[in-house]
Design a protein around this nucleic acid. Structure first.
Length: 269
DNA sequence: AAGGAGACCGCCGTTACGTCA
DNA sequence: CTTGACGTAACGGCGGTCTCC
């Protein structure tokens, strides 16, 4: 089926991070493309095509018809729209003459593209007839338009990935710092002596940080420890609480990166 | 049912042309 | 007037899909 190809187009590089990504589609910014109305003011609209009839008939007969030449790819001399070439007959014979679409033609094509970025043969023919172009020209325009969209999307994706990379780098820096803090905490004798055994550590379900069970161990320990020890414990708890209350950075890669066991105390072991 | 042939279509990379600074 | 940059229409090639035989 062809629909799979269409999907690939619109979601090229679509890594499905989250909903934000999907909002980066380009449609709005595309219409103000500079060249679209750059030079077309003085252009005369092209005349209807002389040789159009054959192609239309062949194509209309059946999309699957073996006689169809609608895709008439290549090697048809571009002799239509010759009126705006102002009498370059000899050139028109040999070289391919490139048509510049008028402002109106571009607008209609653009509108049509907004509705669907591919055309079935019927739509193609209708559009061609409406614009006074050959179906092949409409087809080529849509191909090029899809290519431009994809290119633009790739640029946006690139920018997005760049920002992701920057965010991850920053996150990594932050986590490294956190590791250092935890290491320092671990090496502190008071903290080490009164730290709960690892088996009692609980994982915060929301942020997946290791939580110090304050409600259970703190009251007991406070009664047994001296003032200095209690102060160290309180400090440790405050630090842990500070870590917990730290704003969580939403990581757009979270869904894309497979969860791996992470030992904060031995990140490089 | 399997598979080869032909038609069709979309994408990619490129070329050639039109326009502007 | 010339020239280089840029945008884009048009092309050739290729691969995928579908239909027919």
């Amino acid at each position: 089926m062809m629909s799979s190809k269409h999907d690939n187009l619109s979601l090229s590089l679509g890594l499905s991070f989250d909903s934000h990504y999907l909002q980066l589609n380009l449609r709005p910014s595309w219409n103000d493309h500079a060249s679209s109305d750059r030079t077309s003011e003085n252009r005369t609209p092209p005349s209807p095509v002389d040789c159009e009839e054959e192609e239309e008939e062949a194509a209309v007969s059946s999309p699957n018809s073996t006689v169809s030449t609608v895709s008439g790819k290549r090697s048809e001399p571009e002799t239509n729209n010759g009126e705006d070439l102002d009498g370059d007959e000899e050139d028109a014979e040999t070289s391919r003459k490139k048509l510049r679409l008028t402002k109106d033609q571009s607008a209609v094509l653009e509108d049509s593209f907004k509705e669907h970025n591919t055309l079935n043969p019927k739509q193609k023919l209708a559009l061609a007839k409406q614009l006074g172009l050959r179906p092949r020209q409409v087809e080529v325009w849509f191909q090029n338009r899809r290519a431009r969209t994809k290119l633009k999307q790739t640029e946006v994706d690139c920018e997005f990935l760049k920002r992701c990379c920057e965010n991850l780098t920053e996150e990594n820096r932050r986590l490294q710092k956190e590791v250092q803090e935890l290491r320092a905490l671990k090496l502190s004798p008071q903290f080490y002596m009164h730290m709960a055994p690892p088996t009692t550590l609980t994982m915060c379900p929301s942020c997946e940080r290791v939580a110090v069970p304050s409600s259970t161990s703190a009251p007991l320990n406070v009664t047994r420890m001296g003032p200095a020890q209690a102060q160290a414990q309180a400090q440790a708890q405050a630090q842990s609480k500070a870590l917990h209350s730290r704003p969580i950075h939403v990581n757009p890669w979270a869904s894309a990166i497979p969860a791996r066991p992470f030992n904060a105390l031995h990140p490089r072991s």
